[in-house]
């Protein structure tokens, strides 16, 4: 580092990676997921976190003129199995103009534990400098961070302290590399159930509800202090009528909310998961 201050005007416009949908990009202030920063996406299982990540892995390859980073990405997954077929299908719809094989530009690595992630981050330099993929790596996705921490630690104060130390080390390293290489970092997280009196309000939403449960992001206040932006994916099932045979017809409504982000106001928008990907709905 140098001790010369930076000119902020040169930071404009802030580099971002499109989500591949103008409505979702619009919710994020236009442009998508910001570089040099950690964005967390949390929600219950089946809400579309992984879908959104896969879409991002592909849209990162788009040229700058189309809102992408013209870059490869690194996908670190702790939930098995890796959804290869879905990724392959999405690649044909999102990058249909591309002649190269888009899967060449996605590096996939399973994560087994928090320590495994830490040792990988310590060796990240060489991977970023000598990327085996055709394009340089500009996007790192960790899907999900919660799995690495939810089983290994118990609830004693000493263990919680050890856990939060690890959060800050991991986040510190991710932010340092994000800054050095201009990376966008996306991390997914799970939900925990909260009872009415429990938990402190974090961010714009007084209470967060998904599938009729009151929820919060997993990993507590320490991890919340590690991410720059937090997005929440919620779902609710709505009865829309009855089938001929008396079965209830249920429609799932999904919303993506800005819980907090240094550059964004409070906001949310509805989205759908279609065969072609995740798309915002303009009402």
């Amino acid at each position: 580092m140098t001790l010369t201050p930076e000119n902020l005007v040169s930071h404009l416009p802030v580099k971002k990676c499109t989500l591949g949908c103008p409505i979702l990009d619009g919710l994020l202030g236009g442009g998508g997921i910001p570089c040099n920063s950690i964005t967390e996406i949390f929600g219950e299982s089946g809400c579309g976190k992984t879908q959104l990540c896969l879409q991002l892995l592909l849209s990162a390859q788009l040229p700058h003129s189309l809102g992408g980073l013209s870059a490869s990405s690194l996908y670190l997954h702790s939930e098995l199995p890796f959804p290869l077929r879905r990724l392959h299908h999405l690649s044909t719809t999102i990058l249909n103009h591309n002649n190269n094989n888009p899967l060449d530009n996605i590096l996939v690595r399973p994560l087994h534990s928090a320590d495994d992630l830490l040792s990988l981050l310590l060796r990240l330099d060489s991977l970023l400098l000598l990327s085996p993929s055709p394009l340089p790596i500009k996007l790192i996705v960790i899907d999900s961070i919660a799995v690495l921490f939810r089983s290994e630690f118990d609830n004693s104060p000493a263990e919680l302290r050890r856990r939060s130390n690890l959060f800050f080390r991991i986040a510190g390293m991710l932010k340092m590399q994000a800054r050095r290489f201009g990376l966008a970092v996306v991390v997914t997280n799970q939900v925990v159930d909260l009872v009415e009196s429990e938990g402190f309000r974090v961010g714009n939403l007084g209470g967060m509800w998904s599938s009729g449960r009151r929820v919060g992001a997993a990993l507590g206040m320490a991890w919340a202090s590690c991410v720059n932006s937090r997005l929440f994916l919620s779902r609710s099932d709505e009865v829309v009528g009855r089938e001929g045979d008396g079965e209830l017809r249920v429609r799932t409504r999904r919303r993506i909310h800005v819980v907090f982000a240094p550059h964004l106001p409070e906001g949310s928008c509805e989205y759908q998961i279609l065969r072609e990907g995740v798309f915002g709905v303009r009402l």
Binding site: P5, L12, V14, S37, I38, K175, R179, N228, P262
Partner: peptide, 16 residues
């Protein structure tokens, strides 16, 4: 002003 950013949350577009 001098701004020392340790977290990476200082975004130029918001300052603008």
């Amino acid at each position: 002003a001098i701004y020392i950013d340790t977290e990476g949350s200082f975004m130029a577009e918001r300052v603008f």
